[in-house]
């Protein structure tokens, strides 16, 4: 059981690094998030500079709180870039095997479908974790140079990780429904945006439906964590999201079998 998951996992991780996908995606992610981090920090220091001459301004908008002005926007931006980059990380996981025909072989080895899915999922999750970890320098810089609150940073990262775990499961599912990687990536991006934009549309519908929509929204559950509040409801949301899409992925492989 664990051995089979481990075998698939190892193979996928090796392939991520040998094909340079992992390096490229992580590097691009770092460049974009780095640029944006720099941007918020510069804005923050300009505000602080202005505020020196006008203390009222700072008080009014609560702008000189590093957590509010730098950390929270930073998390928002990281989550957005994650959403954009994740489909490229997950698109090959199953689509590639279907295209090259290796899926036929792997499905005739004495491995359960669930083990294949878990191995691939964990591999995607690992590369994502590395990608997320690459941004840790930014909060460390903040800690070194300023006095941000530590707790929201830790819970924020925990939230980002959970959100990314959900992204990977959705991406894996998208990769299972097609043998074309571009289609897999586009599908994943579309669906992720759908879940991401739900929170905005919640305002336009009736309160009852609005509650459901905002519950389903993938980023609403992240907001409170970015503020330092960890609610089990949010954790359960992300875990169920992952389980649901892994289940769909298995169904999709099964139907691939039946269709031949």
């Amino acid at each position: 059981m664990f051995r089979n998951i481990g075998l698939i996992y190892k193979k996928e991780i090796k392939s991520y690094f040998k094909s340079y996908i992992a390096y490229v995606v992580i590097a691009v992610f770092m460049v974009i998030t780095g640029f944006m981090f720099n941007d918020v920090v510069v804005k923050f220091s300009m505000l602080s500079f202005k505020a020196q001459g006008n203390p009222m301004l700072a008080k009014q908008y609560n702008l000189l709180n590093v957590t509010e002005t730098v950390v929270r926007p930073m998390f928002g931006q990281i989550s957005m870039i994650m959403l954009l980059m994740m489909p490229m990380l997950t698109m090959k996981l199953l689509a590639d095997e279907k295209k090259s025909g290796t899926m036929e072989l792997i499905l005739t080895y004495p491995i359960r479908d669930a083990e294949v899915v878990m191995g691939k999922y964990l591999a995607g999750l690992t590369v994502f974790a590395a990608m997320l970890f690459s941004t840790v320098t930014y909060p460390l810089l903040l800690i070194a140079l300023g006095e941000p609150e530590i707790v929201p940073m830790i819970t924020g990262y925990f939230g980002l990780f959970l959100m990314g775990a959900a992204f990977v499961s959705l991406g894996l599912f998208a990769s299972s429904v097609t043998e074309n990687q571009i289609i897999a990536a586009s599908l994943a991006l579309g669906m992720l945006f759908l879940f991401y934009l739900m929170s905005m549309s919640a305002a336009y519908v009736s309160p009852g439906i609005g509650r459901i929509v905002s519950y389903l929204s993938i980023n609403d559950h992240f907001f409170s964590m970015a503020k330092g509040v960890v609610d089990t409801e949010d954790i359960i949301y992300y875990l169920s999201f992952v389980v649901f899409f892994l289940f769909l992925t298995m169904r999709s492989i099964e139907s691939h079998r039946w269709r031949g």
């Binding site: 193979k11 392939s15 040998k18 094909s19 090259s100 025909g101 290796t102 899926m103 036929e104 072989l105």
Partner: peptide
């Protein structure tokens, strides 16, 4: 299988 699918990498 007929097409001899292998992991090329």
């Amino acid at each position: 299988p007929e097409s001899v699918p292998l992991y090329k990498d």
